[in-house]
């Protein structure tokens, strides 16, 4: 008998093994739902999958009577726009400040302690301030996401730039590179894979901040919808919405992983398959 740590599944078995827990979860849900319906035909807690499918199909294909929009897509669009803007500005902030902190000892001496302190502020505690300063519109939600994840990106990037061997920095200088050229051609490309990894890890927190902001003050969005229909115990909307948000986050994560491996193949050479 081989050791457990040496047993590697083949490609087919891998797919099967990946699907198995999902199938199991769905199966348990179906059982539970059927059980509750059998006891109480009006049960709202675990609606059957058919009911959720018809509700979500209606939300995705029939215009809303009040606003005239397709609710699911309008919510998704609004949320993704906020998320995209938030992640985008956070990445930009992370890149600029992270590279400056990592590359320039003067900047590091001046700002690293400040960044370390600022990154400890709980972003949700700032939400009331954001609402007061930026109003209840889009801006405050985007700013919350930026404030929530930019400090992590800044510190992660500064650390990964700082971890580039000094030999490479010296080598670049002996090849005639200026500070700017070293940042552009040595530090930035080597920091990019790590930035994308950090961004992947930030997707979860980004959604957390997005949905929190939407739950408190919004007129559309995935988080807004969930917290709106909560009043009617509409689990047939909430559960599919949660699944949809999860799927979006998962696809985003997967896309970033693929982009990182496609664009920076050299960074993943030693990766265990």
């Amino acid at each position: 008998m081989r050791r457990a740590m040496n047993i590697v599944p083949g490609p087919g078995a891998r797919v099967l093994l990946a699907m198995l827990p999902f199938a199991l979860l769905v199966f348990i849900y179906i059982l539970g739902s059927a059980e509750r319906r059998a006891v109480n035909p009006d049960d709202k807690l675990l609606p059957p999958i058919s009911e959720m499918a018809s509700t979500i199909t209606r939300m995705a294909t029939e215009p809303d009577r009040r606003t005239g929009t397709l609710v699911l897509w309008a919510d998704t669009g609004a949320s993704l726009q906020r998320l995209g803007l938030g992640l985008g500005f956070a990445t930009l902030t992370g890149l600029v400040i992270g590279l400056a902190l990592g590359m320039l000892p003067l900047v590091r001496a001046g700002f690293a302690p400040l960044v370390a302190v600022l990154s400890m502020i709980p972003p949700m505690a700032l939400l009331p301030i954001l609402f007061i300063v930026f109003g209840l519109g889009e801006l405050s939600k985007v700013v919350l996401i930026v404030i929530g994840i930019a400090p992590f990106l800044v510190r992660d990037l500064a650390m990964s730039v700082g971890a580039i061997p000094i030999e490479q920095m010296v080598k670049a200088q002996t090849l005639g590179a200026s500070t700017w050229q070293t940042v552009l051609r040595v530090a930035l490309p080597q920091a990019m894979p790590r930035l994308l990894e950090a961004l992947r890890l930030s997707i979860g927190p980004a959604f957390l901040f997005l949905i929190s902001a939407e739950a408190i003050a919004a007129e559309n969005g995935l988080g807004y919808r969930i917290f709106l229909v909560r009043r009617y115990l509409a689990m047939d909307v909430i559960i599919p919405y949660v699944a949809w948000i999860t799927l979006l986050a998962y696809v985003l994560d997967l896309a970033l992983a693929k982009i990182a491996r496609g664009a920076f193949p050299w960074a993943y050479v030693g990766e265990r398959r």
Partner: peptide, 8 residues
């Protein structure tokens, strides 16, 4: 001895 070339 090490890290002399740019890995990227």
């Amino acid at each position: 001895q090490r890290y002399s070339v740019f890995p990227h």
